[in-house]
Design a protein around this nucleic acid. Structure first.
Lengths: 249, 249
DNA sequence: CTCTGCAATCTTGTATGGTAGATGCTTCCG
DNA sequence: CGGAAGCATCTACCATACAAGATTGCAGAG
Protein backbone atom coordinates (compact mmCIF):
# COMPACT_ATOMS: atom_id res chain seq x y z
CA UNK A 1 0.00 0.00 0.00
CA UNK A 2 3.04 2.19 0.35
CA UNK A 3 1.28 5.12 2.03
CA UNK A 4 2.85 8.12 0.46
CA UNK A 5 3.47 10.44 3.32
CA UNK A 6 3.26 14.14 2.83
CA UNK A 7 3.15 16.93 5.29
CA UNK A 8 0.83 18.93 3.08
CA UNK A 9 1.35 22.02 5.11
CA UNK A 10 3.88 23.07 7.66
CA UNK A 11 6.09 22.40 4.72
CA UNK A 12 9.53 23.29 5.80
CA UNK A 13 9.54 26.74 4.43
CA UNK A 14 9.24 27.94 0.96
CA UNK A 15 7.72 25.18 -1.04
CA UNK A 16 4.09 24.18 -1.16
CA UNK A 17 3.17 20.61 -1.47
CA UNK A 18 6.13 19.20 0.35
CA UNK A 19 7.11 15.58 0.10
CA UNK A 20 9.35 14.28 2.79
CA UNK A 21 9.16 10.59 2.55
CA UNK A 22 11.05 7.58 3.81
CA UNK A 23 10.21 8.59 7.33
CA UNK A 24 13.40 9.52 8.99
CA UNK A 25 13.28 11.35 12.22
CA UNK A 26 13.43 14.66 10.44
CA UNK A 27 13.30 17.17 13.20
CA UNK A 28 9.98 16.78 14.88
CA UNK A 29 7.05 15.74 12.82
CA UNK A 30 4.74 16.21 15.73
CA UNK A 31 3.20 19.41 14.60
CA UNK A 32 1.23 18.36 11.64
CA UNK A 33 -2.30 17.38 10.91
CA UNK A 34 -1.68 13.91 9.66
CA UNK A 35 -4.31 12.37 11.89
CA UNK A 36 -7.25 14.35 10.58
CA UNK A 37 -9.98 13.07 8.32
CA UNK A 38 -9.34 15.81 5.83
CA UNK A 39 -5.77 14.66 5.50
CA UNK A 40 -6.77 11.09 4.86
CA UNK A 41 -9.16 12.24 2.16
CA UNK A 42 -6.42 14.30 0.54
CA UNK A 43 -4.11 11.30 0.41
CA UNK A 44 -6.78 8.98 -0.89
CA UNK A 45 -7.95 11.35 -3.58
CA UNK A 46 -4.44 12.26 -4.68
CA UNK A 47 -3.55 8.62 -5.08
CA UNK A 48 -6.72 7.99 -7.02
CA UNK A 49 -6.00 10.87 -9.33
CA UNK A 50 -2.33 10.15 -9.93
CA UNK A 51 -3.05 6.47 -10.44
CA UNK A 52 -5.78 7.36 -12.91
CA UNK A 53 -8.51 5.65 -10.91
CA UNK A 54 -10.12 9.06 -11.19
CA UNK A 55 -9.70 10.13 -14.79
CA UNK A 56 -9.19 13.65 -16.07
CA UNK A 57 -12.58 15.15 -16.75
CA UNK A 58 -14.41 13.08 -14.17
CA UNK A 59 -16.84 15.17 -12.17
CA UNK A 60 -17.05 14.63 -8.46
CA UNK A 61 -18.87 16.45 -5.71
CA UNK A 62 -18.45 17.02 -2.03
CA UNK A 63 -21.48 14.92 -1.14
CA UNK A 64 -20.39 12.22 -3.53
CA UNK A 65 -16.95 11.75 -2.01
CA UNK A 66 -18.29 12.30 1.49
CA UNK A 67 -20.73 9.48 1.06
CA UNK A 68 -18.16 7.24 -0.55
CA UNK A 69 -15.78 7.62 2.37
CA UNK A 70 -18.42 7.75 5.05
CA UNK A 71 -17.44 11.16 6.34
CA UNK A 72 -19.02 14.57 6.43
CA UNK A 73 -18.79 17.09 3.63
CA UNK A 74 -16.61 19.47 5.55
CA UNK A 75 -13.30 17.56 5.46
CA UNK A 76 -13.96 16.65 1.85
CA UNK A 77 -14.39 20.28 1.01
CA UNK A 78 -11.07 21.12 2.61
CA UNK A 79 -9.41 18.30 0.72
CA UNK A 80 -10.81 19.74 -2.50
CA UNK A 81 -9.28 23.09 -1.70
CA UNK A 82 -5.87 21.59 -1.12
CA UNK A 83 -5.98 19.49 -4.26
CA UNK A 84 -7.22 22.42 -6.31
CA UNK A 85 -4.21 24.43 -5.22
CA UNK A 86 -2.00 21.56 -6.22
CA UNK A 87 -3.49 21.71 -9.67
CA UNK A 88 -5.25 18.35 -9.59
CA UNK A 89 -8.83 19.55 -9.24
CA UNK A 90 -10.80 22.37 -10.75
CA UNK A 91 -13.52 23.82 -8.55
CA UNK A 92 -16.25 25.51 -10.54
CA UNK A 93 -18.33 27.38 -8.00
CA UNK A 94 -21.94 26.34 -7.75
CA UNK A 95 -21.41 24.05 -10.71
CA UNK A 96 -19.20 21.11 -9.94
CA UNK A 97 -15.69 19.98 -9.21
CA UNK A 98 -13.83 18.06 -11.88
CA UNK A 99 -10.57 16.22 -12.09
CA UNK A 100 -8.40 18.56 -14.04
CA UNK A 101 -7.41 17.52 -17.49
CA UNK A 102 -3.75 17.43 -18.22
CA UNK A 103 -2.44 20.50 -19.97
CA UNK A 104 0.26 19.62 -22.50
CA UNK A 105 1.74 23.07 -22.26
CA UNK A 106 1.61 22.85 -18.49
CA UNK A 107 3.46 19.57 -18.50
CA UNK A 108 6.07 21.01 -20.83
CA UNK A 109 6.62 23.95 -18.55
CA UNK A 110 6.83 21.66 -15.57
CA UNK A 111 9.55 19.84 -17.43
CA UNK A 112 11.25 23.14 -18.17
CA UNK A 113 11.21 23.99 -14.50
CA UNK A 114 12.53 20.61 -13.55
CA UNK A 115 15.30 20.73 -16.08
CA UNK A 116 16.33 24.22 -15.02
CA UNK A 117 16.67 23.21 -11.41
CA UNK A 118 18.18 19.80 -11.91
CA UNK A 119 20.79 21.17 -14.28
CA UNK A 120 21.77 23.72 -11.71
CA UNK A 121 21.89 21.00 -9.09
CA UNK A 122 24.08 18.70 -11.14
CA UNK A 123 26.44 21.57 -11.80
CA UNK A 124 26.84 22.21 -8.12
CA UNK A 125 27.39 18.57 -7.32
CA UNK A 126 29.85 18.00 -10.15
CA UNK A 127 31.83 21.11 -9.35
CA UNK A 128 32.45 19.85 -5.83
CA UNK A 129 33.98 16.38 -6.16
CA UNK A 130 32.81 15.35 -2.71
CA UNK A 131 33.90 11.81 -1.95
CA UNK A 132 30.49 10.91 -0.59
CA UNK A 133 28.66 11.63 -3.80
CA UNK A 134 30.30 8.98 -5.95
CA UNK A 135 29.71 6.23 -3.43
CA UNK A 136 26.08 7.02 -2.74
CA UNK A 137 25.19 7.36 -6.39
CA UNK A 138 26.95 4.15 -7.32
CA UNK A 139 25.07 2.28 -4.65
CA UNK A 140 21.75 3.64 -5.82
CA UNK A 141 22.46 2.55 -9.36
CA UNK A 142 23.24 -0.95 -8.13
CA UNK A 143 19.89 -1.04 -6.40
CA UNK A 144 18.20 0.13 -9.55
CA UNK A 145 19.79 -2.66 -11.54
CA UNK A 146 18.55 -5.14 -8.98
CA UNK A 147 15.03 -3.77 -9.16
CA UNK A 148 15.13 -3.80 -12.93
CA UNK A 149 16.37 -7.38 -13.01
CA UNK A 150 13.55 -8.37 -10.68
CA UNK A 151 11.10 -6.57 -12.95
CA UNK A 152 9.86 -4.59 -9.96
CA UNK A 153 8.83 -1.47 -11.79
CA UNK A 154 7.25 0.11 -8.77
CA UNK A 155 10.42 -0.17 -6.76
CA UNK A 156 12.44 1.03 -9.71
CA UNK A 157 10.30 4.13 -9.97
CA UNK A 158 10.91 4.90 -6.33
CA UNK A 159 14.63 4.40 -6.73
CA UNK A 160 14.65 6.62 -9.78
CA UNK A 161 13.01 9.33 -7.77
CA UNK A 162 15.43 8.77 -4.92
CA UNK A 163 18.37 9.14 -7.29
CA UNK A 164 17.27 12.62 -8.29
CA UNK A 165 16.38 13.65 -4.79
CA UNK A 166 19.74 12.49 -3.55
CA UNK A 167 21.40 14.80 -6.03
CA UNK A 168 19.34 17.65 -4.61
CA UNK A 169 20.44 16.72 -1.13
CA UNK A 170 24.07 16.59 -2.16
CA UNK A 171 23.70 20.06 -3.60
CA UNK A 172 22.25 21.28 -0.31
CA UNK A 173 18.87 22.18 -1.77
CA UNK A 174 16.67 19.30 -0.74
CA UNK A 175 13.63 21.50 -0.37
CA UNK A 176 13.96 22.42 -4.00
CA UNK A 177 13.25 18.80 -4.74
CA UNK A 178 9.90 19.06 -3.03
CA UNK A 179 9.01 21.65 -5.60
CA UNK A 180 9.96 19.36 -8.44
CA UNK A 181 8.05 16.58 -6.76
CA UNK A 182 4.87 18.61 -6.75
CA UNK A 183 5.14 19.35 -10.42
CA UNK A 184 6.08 15.80 -11.14
CA UNK A 185 2.58 14.74 -10.13
CA UNK A 186 1.32 16.02 -13.44
CA UNK A 187 3.88 14.04 -15.35
CA UNK A 188 3.31 11.03 -13.14
CA UNK A 189 -0.25 10.86 -14.37
CA UNK A 190 1.12 10.65 -17.88
CA UNK A 191 3.67 8.09 -16.82
CA UNK A 192 0.98 5.93 -15.30
CA UNK A 193 -0.74 5.67 -18.67
CA UNK A 194 2.35 4.18 -20.21
CA UNK A 195 3.36 1.82 -17.46
CA UNK A 196 5.53 -1.16 -18.22
CA UNK A 197 7.33 0.37 -21.14
CA UNK A 198 9.50 2.39 -18.84
CA UNK A 199 12.63 0.98 -20.44
CA UNK A 200 14.49 1.02 -17.20
CA UNK A 201 17.62 -0.21 -18.94
CA UNK A 202 18.10 3.04 -20.76
CA UNK A 203 17.35 5.09 -17.66
CA UNK A 204 19.99 3.17 -15.74
CA UNK A 205 22.53 3.74 -18.46
CA UNK A 206 21.81 7.46 -18.33
CA UNK A 207 22.12 7.50 -14.57
CA UNK A 208 25.51 5.88 -14.95
CA UNK A 209 26.62 8.58 -17.34
CA UNK A 210 25.54 11.24 -14.91
CA UNK A 211 27.20 9.58 -11.94
CA UNK A 212 30.45 9.03 -13.84
CA UNK A 213 30.58 12.64 -14.97
CA UNK A 214 30.05 13.70 -11.36
CA UNK A 215 32.80 11.36 -10.19
CA UNK A 216 35.33 12.94 -12.53
CA UNK A 217 34.06 16.45 -11.78
CA UNK A 218 33.07 16.98 -15.40
CA UNK A 219 30.56 19.79 -15.06
CA UNK A 220 29.74 20.19 -18.73
CA UNK A 221 29.47 16.46 -19.23
CA UNK A 222 27.18 16.04 -16.25
CA UNK A 223 24.96 18.83 -17.47
CA UNK A 224 24.70 17.34 -20.94
CA UNK A 225 23.92 13.90 -19.54
CA UNK A 226 21.22 15.31 -17.30
CA UNK A 227 19.61 17.23 -20.13
CA UNK A 228 19.58 14.15 -22.28
CA UNK A 229 18.10 12.13 -19.46
CA UNK A 230 15.28 14.56 -18.77
CA UNK A 231 14.66 15.27 -22.44
CA UNK A 232 13.24 11.83 -23.00
CA UNK A 233 10.05 12.79 -21.19
CA UNK A 234 9.10 14.96 -24.12
CA UNK A 235 8.54 12.12 -26.55
CA UNK A 236 6.70 10.22 -23.85
CA UNK A 237 4.30 13.10 -23.53
CA UNK A 238 3.67 13.47 -27.23
CA UNK A 239 3.03 9.78 -27.60
CA UNK A 240 0.60 9.78 -24.71
CA UNK A 241 -1.36 12.72 -26.07
CA UNK A 242 -2.00 10.75 -29.21
CA UNK A 243 -3.03 7.62 -27.33
CA UNK A 244 -5.33 9.32 -24.82
CA UNK A 245 -6.52 12.59 -26.32
CA UNK A 246 -9.54 12.75 -24.01
CA UNK A 247 -7.35 13.20 -20.95
CA UNK A 248 -5.74 16.34 -22.31
CA UNK A 249 -6.99 19.82 -22.89
CA UNK B 1 -5.74 50.16 -3.56
CA UNK B 2 -4.03 48.13 -6.22
CA UNK B 3 -6.03 44.96 -5.61
CA UNK B 4 -3.53 42.26 -6.33
CA UNK B 5 -5.47 39.82 -8.39
CA UNK B 6 -4.71 36.16 -8.14
CA UNK B 7 -6.61 33.20 -9.37
CA UNK B 8 -5.62 31.17 -6.35
CA UNK B 9 -6.92 28.01 -7.90
CA UNK B 10 -7.92 27.03 -11.36
CA UNK B 11 -4.38 28.11 -11.94
CA UNK B 12 -3.65 27.30 -15.48
CA UNK B 13 -2.07 23.96 -14.86
CA UNK B 14 0.99 23.02 -13.03
CA UNK B 15 1.79 25.76 -10.64
CA UNK B 16 0.14 26.47 -7.35
CA UNK B 17 -0.37 29.96 -6.19
CA UNK B 18 -0.52 31.60 -9.57
CA UNK B 19 -0.11 35.29 -10.05
CA UNK B 20 -1.44 36.79 -13.20
CA UNK B 21 -1.68 40.45 -12.63
CA UNK B 22 -2.13 43.62 -14.63
CA UNK B 23 -5.63 42.58 -15.53
CA UNK B 24 -5.75 42.01 -19.19
CA UNK B 25 -8.58 40.07 -20.60
CA UNK B 26 -6.61 36.89 -20.25
CA UNK B 27 -8.70 34.18 -21.73
CA UNK B 28 -11.77 33.81 -19.66
CA UNK B 29 -11.54 34.48 -16.00
CA UNK B 30 -15.12 33.47 -15.52
CA UNK B 31 -14.58 30.22 -13.76
CA UNK B 32 -12.95 31.26 -10.60
CA UNK B 33 -14.05 31.94 -7.11
CA UNK B 34 -13.04 35.53 -6.87
CA UNK B 35 -16.36 36.65 -5.51
CA UNK B 36 -16.35 34.47 -2.44
CA UNK B 37 -15.76 35.61 1.09
CA UNK B 38 -12.98 33.10 1.53
CA UNK B 39 -11.16 34.63 -1.38
CA UNK B 40 -11.41 38.12 0.04
CA UNK B 41 -10.01 36.89 3.33
CA UNK B 42 -7.11 35.22 1.53
CA UNK B 43 -6.23 38.42 -0.27
CA UNK B 44 -6.53 40.55 2.84
CA UNK B 45 -4.45 38.23 4.98
CA UNK B 46 -1.77 37.72 2.35
CA UNK B 47 -1.36 41.45 1.96
CA UNK B 48 -1.15 41.87 5.71
CA UNK B 49 1.50 39.20 5.96
CA UNK B 50 3.64 40.30 3.05
CA UNK B 51 3.43 43.91 4.14
CA UNK B 52 4.44 42.89 7.64
CA UNK B 53 1.28 44.22 9.23
CA UNK B 54 1.11 40.69 10.59
CA UNK B 55 4.57 39.87 11.81
CA UNK B 56 6.27 36.50 11.72
CA UNK B 57 5.48 34.70 14.94
CA UNK B 58 2.16 36.46 15.49
CA UNK B 59 -0.53 34.13 16.73
CA UNK B 60 -3.93 34.37 15.13
CA UNK B 61 -7.02 32.23 15.35
CA UNK B 62 -9.98 31.50 13.18
CA UNK B 63 -12.42 33.16 15.55
CA UNK B 64 -10.11 36.14 15.90
CA UNK B 65 -9.93 36.86 12.19
CA UNK B 66 -13.58 35.95 11.70
CA UNK B 67 -14.61 38.54 14.24
CA UNK B 68 -12.26 41.13 12.81
CA UNK B 69 -13.75 40.78 9.33
CA UNK B 70 -17.31 40.21 10.46
CA UNK B 71 -17.64 36.82 8.83
CA UNK B 72 -18.05 33.29 9.98
CA UNK B 73 -15.23 30.98 10.92
CA UNK B 74 -15.72 28.80 7.88
CA UNK B 75 -14.30 31.01 5.13
CA UNK B 76 -11.50 32.08 7.44
CA UNK B 77 -10.60 28.48 7.98
CA UNK B 78 -10.42 27.87 4.26
CA UNK B 79 -8.26 30.92 3.83
CA UNK B 80 -5.91 29.55 6.48
CA UNK B 81 -5.60 26.31 4.58
CA UNK B 82 -4.68 28.10 1.38
CA UNK B 83 -2.15 30.35 3.06
CA UNK B 84 -0.64 27.44 4.93
CA UNK B 85 -0.07 25.67 1.63
CA UNK B 86 1.60 28.79 0.33
CA UNK B 87 3.98 28.69 3.26
CA UNK B 88 2.78 31.85 4.97
CA UNK B 89 0.93 30.30 7.89
CA UNK B 90 1.60 27.36 10.15
CA UNK B 91 -1.47 25.55 11.44
CA UNK B 92 -0.80 23.68 14.64
CA UNK B 93 -3.82 21.46 15.15
CA UNK B 94 -5.80 22.12 18.29
CA UNK B 95 -3.19 24.63 19.36
CA UNK B 96 -3.13 27.74 17.25
CA UNK B 97 -2.19 29.20 13.90
CA UNK B 98 0.85 31.42 13.63
CA UNK B 99 2.35 33.59 10.95
CA UNK B 100 5.30 31.58 9.81
CA UNK B 101 8.70 32.90 10.61
CA UNK B 102 11.03 33.37 7.71
CA UNK B 103 13.45 30.54 7.18
CA UNK B 104 16.85 31.82 6.02
CA UNK B 105 17.63 28.51 4.41
CA UNK B 106 14.22 28.49 2.79
CA UNK B 107 14.78 31.93 1.34
CA UNK B 108 18.16 30.86 0.03
CA UNK B 109 16.67 27.87 -1.66
CA UNK B 110 13.90 30.00 -3.10
CA UNK B 111 16.64 32.16 -4.54
CA UNK B 112 18.36 29.07 -5.90
CA UNK B 113 15.16 28.03 -7.60
CA UNK B 114 14.61 31.45 -9.02
CA UNK B 115 18.14 31.73 -10.32
CA UNK B 116 17.97 28.29 -11.91
CA UNK B 117 14.84 29.13 -13.82
CA UNK B 118 15.67 32.68 -14.75
CA UNK B 119 19.07 31.68 -16.04
CA UNK B 120 17.46 29.08 -18.25
CA UNK B 121 14.95 31.68 -19.39
CA UNK B 122 17.56 34.26 -20.27
CA UNK B 123 19.47 31.66 -22.24
CA UNK B 124 16.44 30.86 -24.30
CA UNK B 125 15.65 34.48 -24.94
CA UNK B 126 19.21 35.41 -25.80
CA UNK B 127 19.69 32.48 -28.10
CA UNK B 128 16.74 33.61 -30.19
CA UNK B 129 17.39 37.20 -31.17
CA UNK B 130 13.70 37.91 -31.74
CA UNK B 131 13.19 41.46 -32.83
CA UNK B 132 10.38 42.00 -30.38
CA UNK B 133 12.47 41.31 -27.31
CA UNK B 134 14.88 44.19 -27.64
CA UNK B 135 12.13 46.75 -28.10
CA UNK B 136 9.95 45.60 -25.25
CA UNK B 137 12.81 45.38 -22.80
CA UNK B 138 14.14 48.78 -23.76
CA UNK B 139 10.75 50.33 -23.21
CA UNK B 140 10.42 48.73 -19.81
CA UNK B 141 13.78 50.08 -18.76
CA UNK B 142 12.72 53.56 -19.82
CA UNK B 143 9.65 53.26 -17.62
CA UNK B 144 11.80 52.12 -14.75
CA UNK B 145 14.03 55.15 -15.11
CA UNK B 146 10.98 57.36 -15.03
CA UNK B 147 9.67 55.69 -11.89
CA UNK B 148 13.06 55.93 -10.27
CA UNK B 149 13.36 59.61 -11.12
CA UNK B 150 9.93 60.22 -9.63
CA UNK B 151 10.99 58.31 -6.51
CA UNK B 152 7.96 56.09 -6.90
CA UNK B 153 9.41 52.98 -5.32
CA UNK B 154 6.15 51.10 -5.40
CA UNK B 155 5.78 51.57 -9.10
CA UNK B 156 9.40 50.71 -9.60
CA UNK B 157 8.95 47.46 -7.76
CA UNK B 158 6.08 46.54 -10.02
CA UNK B 159 8.08 47.40 -13.11
CA UNK B 160 10.98 45.36 -11.84
CA UNK B 161 8.70 42.39 -11.47
CA UNK B 162 7.21 43.01 -14.89
CA UNK B 163 10.68 43.03 -16.43
CA UNK B 164 11.39 39.55 -15.19
CA UNK B 165 7.99 38.25 -16.06
CA UNK B 166 8.30 39.63 -19.55
CA UNK B 167 11.46 37.63 -20.01
CA UNK B 168 9.52 34.52 -18.99
CA UNK B 169 6.83 35.36 -21.50
CA UNK B 170 9.39 35.87 -24.26
CA UNK B 171 10.80 32.45 -23.45
CA UNK B 172 7.35 30.94 -23.72
CA UNK B 173 7.20 29.80 -20.12
CA UNK B 174 5.03 32.39 -18.45
CA UNK B 175 3.57 29.86 -16.05
CA UNK B 176 7.03 29.26 -14.74
CA UNK B 177 6.99 32.83 -13.58
CA UNK B 178 3.97 32.15 -11.41
CA UNK B 179 6.09 29.66 -9.59
CA UNK B 180 8.82 32.18 -9.00
CA UNK B 181 6.21 34.68 -7.92
CA UNK B 182 4.95 32.35 -5.22
CA UNK B 183 8.39 31.86 -3.84
CA UNK B 184 9.10 35.53 -4.14
CA UNK B 185 6.51 36.21 -1.44
CA UNK B 186 8.96 34.99 1.13
CA UNK B 187 11.64 37.30 -0.15
CA UNK B 188 9.17 40.12 -0.50
CA UNK B 189 8.62 40.02 3.22
CA UNK B 190 12.32 40.56 3.64
CA UNK B 191 12.31 43.29 1.07
CA UNK B 192 9.53 45.10 2.85
CA UNK B 193 11.70 45.38 5.94
CA UNK B 194 14.34 47.25 4.00
CA UNK B 195 12.15 49.53 1.98
CA UNK B 196 13.53 52.69 0.51
CA UNK B 197 17.10 51.51 0.18
CA UNK B 198 16.25 49.59 -2.92
CA UNK B 199 19.00 51.38 -4.87
CA UNK B 200 16.97 51.32 -8.01
CA UNK B 201 19.83 52.91 -9.91
CA UNK B 202 21.94 49.82 -9.68
CA UNK B 203 19.05 47.54 -10.55
CA UNK B 204 18.37 49.59 -13.68
CA UNK B 205 21.99 49.40 -14.71
CA UNK B 206 21.88 45.65 -14.33
CA UNK B 207 18.69 45.42 -16.32
CA UNK B 208 20.41 47.35 -19.08
CA UNK B 209 23.29 44.91 -19.12
CA UNK B 210 20.88 42.03 -19.42
CA UNK B 211 18.85 43.66 -22.17
CA UNK B 212 21.93 44.60 -24.15
CA UNK B 213 23.33 41.08 -23.94
CA UNK B 214 20.01 39.79 -25.19
CA UNK B 215 19.99 42.29 -28.03
CA UNK B 216 23.34 41.08 -29.29
CA UNK B 217 22.44 37.41 -28.71
CA UNK B 218 25.25 37.03 -26.19
CA UNK B 219 24.07 33.99 -24.26
CA UNK B 220 26.98 33.71 -21.89
CA UNK B 221 26.98 37.43 -21.20
CA UNK B 222 23.25 37.47 -20.51
CA UNK B 223 23.57 34.56 -18.13
CA UNK B 224 26.40 36.21 -16.23
CA UNK B 225 24.51 39.47 -15.99
CA UNK B 226 21.41 37.71 -14.71
CA UNK B 227 23.36 35.81 -12.09
CA UNK B 228 24.99 38.98 -10.89
CA UNK B 229 21.63 40.71 -10.76
CA UNK B 230 19.94 38.01 -8.72
CA UNK B 231 22.97 37.45 -6.53
CA UNK B 232 22.51 40.76 -4.82
CA UNK B 233 19.54 39.44 -2.86
CA UNK B 234 21.89 37.34 -0.79
CA UNK B 235 23.51 40.25 1.00
CA UNK B 236 20.11 41.82 1.49
CA UNK B 237 18.98 38.72 3.30
CA UNK B 238 22.01 38.49 5.55
CA UNK B 239 21.70 42.13 6.50
CA UNK B 240 18.04 41.76 7.33
CA UNK B 241 18.61 38.71 9.51
CA UNK B 242 20.92 40.78 11.64
CA UNK B 243 18.51 43.68 11.87
CA UNK B 244 15.38 41.65 12.63
CA UNK B 245 16.46 38.37 14.20
CA UNK B 246 13.06 37.80 15.78
CA UNK B 247 11.39 37.41 12.41
CA UNK B 248 13.61 34.51 11.42
CA UNK B 249 13.89 30.95 12.59
C1' DC C 1 7.76 25.61 49.14
C1' DT C 2 7.20 22.17 45.34
C1' DC C 3 4.87 19.17 42.63
C1' DT C 4 0.81 16.88 40.93
C1' DG C 5 -3.69 16.76 39.07
C1' DC C 6 -7.99 18.64 37.80
C1' DA C 7 -10.84 21.98 35.56
C1' DA C 8 -11.85 26.15 32.91
C1' DT C 9 -10.91 27.82 28.57
C1' DC C 10 -8.44 28.30 24.80
C1' DT C 11 -7.63 26.16 20.02
C1' DT C 12 -8.74 23.57 15.58
C1' DG C 13 -11.52 19.56 13.61
C1' DT C 14 -16.05 17.79 12.22
C1' DA C 15 -21.06 17.58 11.31
C1' DT C 16 -25.19 19.51 9.54
C1' DG C 17 -28.64 22.82 7.88
C1' DG C 18 -29.68 26.49 5.04
C1' DT C 19 -28.74 29.71 0.92
C1' DA C 20 -27.89 31.26 -3.67
C1' DG C 21 -26.38 30.32 -8.19
C1' DA C 22 -26.22 27.19 -12.30
C1' DT C 23 -28.15 23.43 -15.03
C1' DG C 24 -31.44 20.83 -17.38
C1' DC C 25 -35.89 19.19 -17.95
C1' DT C 26 -40.68 19.82 -18.41
C1' DT C 27 -44.47 22.32 -19.70
C1' DC C 28 -46.98 25.71 -21.74
C1' DC C 29 -47.72 29.08 -25.29
C1' DG C 30 -47.29 30.80 -30.01
C1' DC D 1 -43.48 21.81 -34.43
C1' DG D 2 -40.34 25.34 -32.14
C1' DG D 3 -39.14 28.23 -28.43
C1' DA D 4 -39.36 30.34 -23.99
C1' DA D 5 -40.66 30.54 -19.15
C1' DG D 6 -40.80 28.07 -14.87
C1' DC D 7 -39.57 24.62 -11.69
C1' DA D 8 -37.06 20.53 -9.79
C1' DT D 9 -32.59 19.47 -8.66
C1' DC D 10 -28.14 19.63 -8.83
C1' DT D 11 -23.78 22.28 -7.11
C1' DA D 12 -20.50 24.83 -3.91
C1' DC D 13 -20.61 28.48 -0.29
C1' DC D 14 -21.54 29.94 4.26
C1' DA D 15 -23.16 29.85 9.11
C1' DT D 16 -23.67 27.53 13.33
C1' DA D 17 -23.36 23.90 16.78
C1' DC D 18 -20.79 20.42 18.79
C1' DA D 19 -16.62 17.57 19.79
C1' DA D 20 -12.05 16.74 21.27
C1' DG D 21 -7.14 17.77 21.93
C1' DA D 22 -3.95 21.27 24.14
C1' DT D 23 -2.81 24.82 27.30
C1' DT D 24 -3.03 27.47 31.45
C1' DG D 25 -3.64 28.39 36.01
C1' DC D 26 -5.11 27.25 40.34
C1' DA D 27 -5.82 24.37 44.18
C1' DG D 28 -4.61 20.85 47.19
C1' DA D 29 -1.55 17.25 48.85
C1' DG D 30 3.06 16.07 50.15
Amino acid sequence: MEERKRSDQSNPYPSHGSGMESAQVRGKVGDTLEGTIAFRVVVALRDDIVSMALKPGDVISESDIAGRYGVSRQPVREAFIRLAQQGLLLIRPKRATVVKKISPDGVRQSRFIRESIEVEIIRRVASRPGTEAAEVLAKLILDQEAASAANDSRRFHKLDELFHRTLARLAGVEYAWQLIDDHKMQLDRVRYLTLGVSSSQRAIAEHKQIAEAVARADVAGAEAAMRAHLGRAEVLLNQTIEDFPDYFE
